[in-house]
């Protein structure tokens, strides 16, 4: 079991990978990817019971993760590669022609670690509920984690899914919201305010908790606590407070870096702030 400091070191490398991938492609979404690097690291290096070496598309007896907000794929690809789902050298192909690392996650050429395409927003929670129901039918005790963006909650399908999971006590599912309060066009409150998310999900029958998604101690302890509450009759959702662009000072506090790649100078400045801990690809 890695120490928190080790997880923090891994998260630093994930952030480096994110910057280098988006810079290399001159395309992609660094802001949300950086904000969720701590969560992805915690899930893939500590919390989830998974096995990269024998990737099973059906995820039998494995925890699994669905990235509904598929645009933050760099964070996922890095976490998968650093777990040896596929070679880290492949990260260099991100968003380039003939790559398995599509702009948004796809099952293209059966890329290990990806079980469904995501990116057109609002669909991942429904998929995750289906997986959770399959696990129940299979008497498989493992858990489904599903991350959504906060802006993504503006999609109606999310609330269809929320209603279903609440009403049917889908208790082997942990949903997370990347609650950075920003979307492409600006702050959530300027575009379409989400209101009281806690009360909304509680009204739909969910157990709602909150955590600081950029504090590794809190992320690990909170996820462990939530995992211990699965199979207890209620769907769970974590409102995960994050900072878009976390780890790179000039990318924080703005929605500008949602979907803009850094130029050479900016990439260099960003990487100077992120320690290389596992070796760059």
């Amino acid at each position: 079991m890695p120490e928190i400091s080790e997880l923090q070191a891994i998260a630093s490398q994930v952030r480096r990978d994110i910057i280098r991938m988006v810079h290399g492609a001159q395309s992609g979404h660094p802001g949300g990817s950086l904000g969720c690097a701590d969560l992805m690291t915690a899930l893939y290096f500590e919390i989830m019971d998974h096995d990269a070496k024998t990737f099973d598309p059906d995820a039998i007896n494995r925890d699994l993760f669905i990235l509904s907000n598929g645009h933050i794929s760099p964070a996922l690809y890095s976490s998968l590669a650093r777990n040896e789902y596929f070679p880290v050298s492949e990260l260099a192909t991100f968003r380039k022609i003939h790559s398995r690392l599509q702009g948004h996650p796809a099952t293209k050429e059966k890329l290990p670690g990806i079980r469904i395409a995501t990116g057109s927003l609002g669909q991942g929670l429904s998929v995750s509920i289906g997986i959770a129901q399959a696990k129940k039918l299979n008497k498989d005790e493992k858990i489904v984690f599903c991350l959504m963006g906060d802006g993504e909650l503006e999609e109606g399908q999310v609330w269809e899914a929320a209603m279903y999971a609440g009403a049917n006590n889908v208790d082997n599912l942990v949903a997370l919201v990347d609650y950075n309060k920003k979307q492409i066009d600006g702050s959530i409150d300027d575009v379409l305010p989400l209101g009281d998310l806690r009360k909304k999900f509680e009204a739909f029958g969910w157990s709602v908790t909150e955590m600081n998604g950029n504090d590794m101690h809190e992320v690990v302890s909170h996820l462990k606590q939530v995992k211990s509450q699965t199979h207890k009759g209620q769907a769970q959702i974590i409102l995960m407070h994050t900072e878009m662009g976390m780890g790179v000072d000039f990318m924080m506090g703005t929605h500008h870096w949602h979907g803009v790649p850094p130029n050479d100078e900016q990439a260099e400045a960003a990487l100077a702030q992120l320690e290389e801990t596992l070796g760059d690809y």
Binding site: I60, R115, L125, S126, G130, I131, A134, L137
Partner: peptide, 11 residues
Amino acid sequence: GMAAGLTIGGY
């Protein structure tokens, strides 16, 4: 979406 998810698990 749920139908797609149920296939992950062999259904």
